[in-house]
Structure formats: C-alpha cells, structure tokens
Design a protein around this nucleic acid. Sequence first.
DNA 1: TATTTCTCTGCAAAGGTTTGCGGAAAGGTT
DNA 2: AACCTTTCCGCAAACCTTTGCAGAGAAATA
Lengths: 339, 339
Amino acid sequence: MEEISLKTIANRLGISISTVSRALRNHPDIREETKRAVVQLAEELEYEPNHLAFQLLRRKSNSIGVIVPKISYPLYAEAISGIEAVAEAQGYQLLICQSNEDYQKEIKQINSLIASRVSGIILSVSAHTTQYDHLLRIQTRNIPFVLFNRDCEQISCSKVLIDNYKAAYEAVNQLLAAGRHHIGFMGGPPHLQISLRREAGYRAALQERGITINEDLIRQVEFSREAIRQGVTNLLDEAPQLDALITYSDQIAQWALVLARQRGLRIPQDLALIGFNDEPADELLEPSLSSVRQPAYEMGAEAARLIFKELQSTKFAYEKIILESRLIHRGSTWGSAGG
Amino acid sequence: MEEISLKTIANRLGISISTVSRALRNHPDIREETKRAVVQLAEELEYEPNHLAFQLLRRKSNSIGVIVPKISYPLYAEAISGIEAVAEAQGYQLLICQSNEDYQKEIKQINSLIASRVSGIILSVSAHTTQYDHLLRIQTRNIPFVLFNRDCEQISCSKVLIDNYKAAYEAVNQLLAAGRHHIGFMGGPPHLQISLRREAGYRAALQERGITINEDLIRQVEFSREAIRQGVTNLLDEAPQLDALITYSDQIAQWALVLARQRGLRIPQDLALIGFNDEPADELLEPSLSSVRQPAYEMGAEAARLIFKELQSTKFAYEKIILESRLIHRGSTWGSAGG
DNA sequence: TATTTCTCTGCAAAGGTTTGCGGAAAGGTT
DNA sequence: AACCTTTCCGCAAACCTTTGCAGAGAAATA
C-alpha cells in the first residue's frame, strides 16, 4: 500500500538510491547484474517514477496549459485533439481549462497555470476579454505563449490564425458574383476581434463593388442559443430584402437556415447562407450548409509545435502562422449562381 | 528573469523562508508589520507559489486525470465541462487525454497519469479495450477511480451511468406501440458494452411482444464516417421491410436520416429513427431527429463529485449512480403514431 | 532582581529525483 | 612491491514548500 520510491527499491536491495536511479535509466556505470536486479524488483513492485519530483528538480512540469472558451465548440474540441497529438509525442500532458467566455475566469486560470509551472500556454481569448495584462504576465515570465484562432492584436506573441478578413472578403465576393446584392452579416459579441475582422472583410468586398453598406443588415449576437434565435428572427423580420447572409459561426448559420426554412424561404434561391467553421452538422442539414472550413486540428497542432520550438531555442522570434481556409460550397449556396 | 521563490523574498527582506511562508498564509504567529512587508514585496515581484513543490510535499498533485475516447464527441465535450466545473470549485486541475479508441494508448495514458500522481482518474473505456489489468492497477494504488458512460462490467468501482438496457427497451416499446414491427438496431463496435446493453434492451422489448428477432436487422459498425455510411447503406439495401431504426449513437442515426432521405424514404412515415445522445445537430435536421438524451454534463459533474468523495473519506464503498435518460420525440418519430 | 509568560522568528526535516564528484576495490603493469 | 587503470557505487546538493519545535528577546509578574 505504501508509495514505492527509489528508496524502497534501494533499501530492499541494500544499495544506494543513486545506483537505483542510474540502473533504471540504463547508465553505463552500473554493472549488468545490478541493473537486472533493480529492473526486476521495480517491475515486481510496479514502480512508477514520481513526475512531481522530477519536475520540481527541472523547475518545470511536462505539461502545457490550454485555455479555450468552450471545449464543446467543435472547433476547439478538434483543435485540442491536434494539440494533444503533438504534445503526447513529446511526452507532455495537457492542462485544459475553459473560460466559458468569462474574462475573470480567464485570469484565474492563467494564474493557476503559471503556478503549476506549465511549460507553455496555448490560448484562445474569451469573447469578453478587453484588457490584456494577464497575457503580458505570461510573457514577463518567459513562458512560451501562443494565441490561436481568436487573435488579440494588442498582444505581440506567436500566433496561429487564418486570414479572417480575406476569408469573409472572398466569400462575399462569391455571393456578389452570383448576383446577390442584399447581403447581411451576423457577427459575434462586439469585442471579438476575429468577428470584427470578418466584418471588415465583408464591408470591403461590398464597398469595392460600389455597394452602399446598409447598416441594418449588419448585426451582432451573443453565443447563447436564445440570443441567436432572436437575432436571426429580428433580421429576417426587419430586412425582407435580404438575399444572402454570412455569419460569424456555423451555429448562427444553422439556426438561420432552420428559421428561414420554417418561414417558407427557399434556400438558396431566396436566401443564400454561408457559415464559418465547417462543423460536422453542416453536411446533414437540408439543404446542406456552405461554410468556411478552418483547419482546426492543424491549428492546434501548429500551436503546439510553436510551443516546443520556443521551448527548445534559447532565443526565439515570435512566429505568425496563417493557415489556409477554404469555402466549402454546399446546398445553401449551390443554386446561387443562377440567383 | 529569475524564478521568484520564497527564498528570493526572504533574502531581500533579510528574514527566513519560513517566516515568509507563514506571512503569506496569514499565520497568526507573524507580526502585522512583517506580513505587510512580505505581502507587498510578493506582489511587486509577482510571486506565484510553486504548485510542484507543494504537491511533492503532499505527495499528490491537485489534478484529476480524465481519459475519454474522443474529446470531439459532443457527449464527452459536455461531460468534461461538468467535470471541470466541479474540479475548479475545489481548486483542482484536469489532465485530459483521449484514447482515440485505442487500447494501447489507454494503457500508456493511465501509466502516465499514475506517474503524475493524479488525485483521481475518470475514465470512459475505449471501444477496443477487452482486457482490464490496467484498470486494476489504478485500484491497487488506491487512486480514486470512476467509470462513466461506457461501463465495464468486469471492474467493480464507482460508476456514473444511465440504464442503457432500459433506455433502449423503452424506446423500442414506443416504436412497437406506434405499430412498427420491422425495427432494426445498429450498434457500435462489438466489444462496446453499452452498445451490447442497448442491444439487449432492444431484443427484450421485441421478444416480450412475441416478435421473432430477425438477426439481419441487427448490425454493428465502427465509428468512422465511412464505416457508418457503408453500414447504413447495406442495411437499407438488404432490408427493405425496415420501418424503424434505433441506433447506438446520433452520428449513426443522423447519417441514416440523410441517406434514407436521399433514397426518397419518407421520415417518419416509411422509416422512424431514434438515436442516442441528443446532440445539438438533432434539432436542426429535416425532419429533426428523435434521440435518447443523456445528461452528459451531469454525468461528468457526478463523476467528479465521486472522486472528491472518495478522496475525503478514509474508507469508501463503491458507488453506482444511475442517471435518468429520456427519449426526446422529434420529427423522426412524431408521425409514427399513425404508422 | 529573578522568574515566568508571551510574541515573534528561525532551524531543520521531509517529500523523490538527478547528477557531479570522489573513492573503494579489483585488476593490470612495471 | 609500488603504482596506475578501470569498474562500479555512494555522498550530498539542489529543486521549493510546509510545519513541529525550539529559542531569542521583551514584557510582565512575584
């Protein structure tokens, strides 16, 4: 029942702790015979080295901290898989937190990760984070730090993103090419920078075509299902001329699809729809939902790789990785070429 | 740039480490004046206590290990949220691993969690786990251990489950009551015990009605999208008399819905569908998908509570918590009353 | 003044590992 | 017989914290 340590083995064998340690790590100084005895007893006793002690010695834990707004958003679940794959290959574990879009919670979690002496932190900021001191504190301590997906322009650090401006710009251009002129944009909460970037891309595409921007077609909604339903309903009520809608997230677009369908709107003939994130459900809808695919798994994997890169090089420069996004055309836009 | 420890503060103030430690923990032995000085300097230096050292002292880390088959399955993402909420309230962190349904990986991860001296382990076994020595090793070490969702009958430990037998039994009964007689069951991989339990419930309901079981209507599929599509296609091809289908997971049911729709089958008139897990997408489908809702978040929260319960009581008895599941009727069964 | 009491602080051990260095024993060389 | 190598192993420090116990100094009491 007792905790088995090197000491246990050493005492049982009548040798010193250091010899046991070296024997288990196959150090050449130790005689084969001794090694065999040690290894055998270790197996018998089911000895597991104490990571805690090792980490204290090395002054860092073999773990990297991950903070995401919500694990259950498919994008983050997928990204975490990517992080996990890279981390596991390096023998690192993941300390995962979710901020639940709460700024205060994000601060607490960062402090906690710092106290745990994580080797690095990977973060997607909460939608309600408007100050950034807590992020600077990470950098003060020289902890490798990577932002992914949700950028924060005020902070300079390594980042893994897609070009949100361009993605929205191109998507809107395709809608324009298909003859849509009353294109709406439905964004996330007001402080979310990637939502703003997408909005900027949307505006640029329209302006470039000489289309006056109708502010009434541009909305913001919080993440809750109720807020989304309400926001979409309002938009459909108040802007009957709407013939295309591009949204900050698939969740919004999915509900827009369902609600529009319920009103008898034909999709895409009456209303074309484009979401963001290419969630698994998109394929299942009727019609299926067009969406901008982000390489979520790769984003996570790249973020993790950046952490290890910073960890290994003594002097590093911040790296900004822009991954390719791609608009996946499905039923909700297929017919749009004909208008 | 240096790591700030109690020693740093002690040296700077010309007092001993123990005094600093006590001052920060507001020990009554320390004079107010000393406390003030210590606290102020600590803040100035942004001192964060080193969890690693504390944990080594206490011989356990303030973290609990979680192993799930895949984080991106909505059920597990949701359950992790529940675990996280409870753990965070207790000041514990989560070490999250995904087995990717791989038995060997599950073993490695358990060893790694043991080495990290986690305070407890919460696990949903992989679909390909058929031996259980690694689970017994957790118990040998007296590490609090809770199985959730995917049971493993050979292991006796604390568990948080739903009654899968009953859930399937009742769902099938409702289909029978609606006049369906050619009801199929599509399960997961062959070793997955909860899939087998559901299958058993399905069989029992049919037999009770005196219906001879047609083995051709009972199938098993692996988790990959391709396997699911193939399995569903085969079933629809080979069993045209099928008028209802109940599946191990929503993912299967969702694809069955889409594929059946593509063949021109009317849902639910020609084919009624019931899935498991009540995933968010179910509501969005056309028709919407009926599904057995499991309280995923609560499952995670309960599992975490059990860990802390075991952690606090010196002698504990295994506890088995059966949470209520509920069939949510939606479009894929609504019409089924009329057959 | 001598003794007791009280207030505040420091010493040292413990937790499990790794690792530089020194040293004992054994064997080999001159 | 004296010396040098080689082979193998142990000592002790370091990582950072908490905490029982002892002790120093001051104040209070007899």
